[in-house]
Design a protein around this nucleic acid. Structure first.
Lengths: 142, 142
DNA sequence: TTTGCAAATGATAATCCTTCGCAAAAACGC
DNA sequence: GCGTTTTTGCGAAGGATTATCATTTGCAAA
């Protein structure tokens, strides 16, 4: 679930979330599916407007919220600035942000996940979700 | 550095940061030093105003930014909502947020830090800073 | 000490991001 | 198709933070 590999899946994804299938939503899902990085609402709106000039920014925000609640997309807040989104894929991953270029690199570590769970357990908690962001600078090859 | 255990240290802390010693700044540092949790700008302003009614919210924000840049305090963004601050103490630590109560618990893990550095290195980066937040729910003792 | 200048302040306007309110339009079940 | 419920688009409102700018303050040199 949460993975829409092709346009035909969008409708199922919306249906499963209990949302009506509308043109704006199809367009936004299309954009998210094609997106390489982690676009913010303004970027999504810009692309959506190019496909259908009637779409409003409010609809983008509303759709992002609805899709987030249904688990179809994830919302991130890197550094300051606006929230950025990405389609929920099968595998969980965290982010390394290049503080010079803003580039976002994805990575995953089972070891870190395991330790996190261990720490939470020791404190009497179970993890519902987490946020791990590394802010780094490229090391010049020597 | 970054540790002000008593009022007398505030001046050194400001001096080291290249900032002038002013009444508003002394008050704000005093508040941060006494703070138990992770207050936001509004909470700091509220307390500051009680000590000197002339202090403005803008000054709180300006001071937080200046102190953050000098490394004297850290800025956090738990969930949504306003930024929250804490005085930089000697030891680095991360946060576990109780999603039911909003309570923030601090913890530290050398193992996680080590793995983070390792992952970054493998990707060709060195970590400047990071953010690790666990959002969890209390496990009822069974 | 005064004095001069750069830095900091207070008050408020402006900005950015996000959500709200509402009338009109579109989707779904029958 | 019809009626009901959701969504939409628009603009206004909201919250958090920053910018503006005239005035005050801190600090150091005279």
């Amino acid at each position: 679930m949460g993975i829409a590999a092709n346009p035909a899946d969008y409708e199922d994804l919306l249906r499963d979330a209990g949302l009506r299938i509308t043109k704006p939503r199809r367009i936004i899902l299309e954009i998210l599916n094609r997106a390489q990085g982690h676009p913010d609402a303004a970027a999504i709106f810009e692309q959506a407007a190019a496909m259908d000039s009637r779409i409003s920014l409010a609809t983008v925000y509303r759709t992002m919220k609805a899709l987030e609640e249904s688990g179809a997309i994830q919302r991130h807040a890197f550094g300051h600035g606006p929230a950025r989104f990405e389609q929920a894929r099968a595998a969980h991953h965290d982010h390394l942000i290049d503080i010079d270029t803003g580039e976002v690199i994805e990575f995953a570590s089972d070891r870190i996940e395991a330790i996190q769970a261990e720490i939470a357990a020791r404190l009497g908690y179970e993890i519902v979700h987490h946020r791990l962001e590394l802010y780094g600078r490229r090391v010049k090859a020597e």
